[in-house]
């Protein structure tokens, strides 16, 4: 438990503050198979060091298994499998992002490494169409903080199915 970082409430407040200003939104950036992604921090309840994951036989392939977070069972999804990226074993940089989209359950996302929180101004956001062609629904756009390029994810299409 010592490794848990509680971020949820604080960042939800921060996100609300930023939302009212209409100026900046906070994103949590992480890597999957070497590429940088980010999700709105308002949906992240907690960042966990991965506890032992119990695989659930015959579950969809995206689902790594279940873990226990303070007595509650949480399903863990492997975004790399979902995005058909190269997989690597869990190491000491791996983290589970505990997301809460208000779907009735919290879902864990296994990521390779958590980078940092970016407060992105509207000017630093690009639409997904900037990538050209038809982009999948879970790609919300591009974030361009100085010196970085982030694929912004919309978690709903990923986790609702």
């Amino acid at each position: 438990m010592a490794g848990l970082v509680r971020t949820g409430a604080r960042h939800q407040r921060a996100a609300r503050r930023a939302g009212e200003g209409g100026k900046r939104t906070e994103y949590l950036a992480f890597t999957l198979a070497g590429e940088a992604y980010a999700v709105q921090i308002a949906f992240i309840a907690e960042i966990l060091k991965p506890p032992p994951i119990t695989e659930v036989p015959r579950a969809p392939r995206n689902i790594l298994g279940v873990v226990s977070v303070r007595g509650k069972l949480v399903t863990v999804v492997d975004l790399r499998r979902r995005f058909q990226l190269a997989e690597s074993p869990i190491d000491r940089k791996s983290r589970i992002l505990l997301t809460d989209l208000g779907l009735g359950e919290q879902i864990g996302l296994l990521v390779d490494e958590v980078l940092q929180v970016y407060r992105l101004a509207e000017s630093e956001l690009e639409a997904a169409s900037a990538l050209g062609g038809d982009q999948p629904a879970h790609i919300a756009g591009i974030g361009r903080p100085p010196g970085q390029l982030l694929v912004l994810l919309d978690l709903r299409p990923i986790l609702e199915t």
Binding site: V56, R58, I63, V66, G104, Q106
Partner: peptide, 15 residues
């Protein structure tokens, strides 16, 4: 109980 996302997986009453 297992979460909603894997409720439909057959054979498990929970964990």
């Amino acid at each position: 109980a297992l979460g909603r996302s894997i409720k439909s997986v057959r054979g498990f009453a929970g964990a």
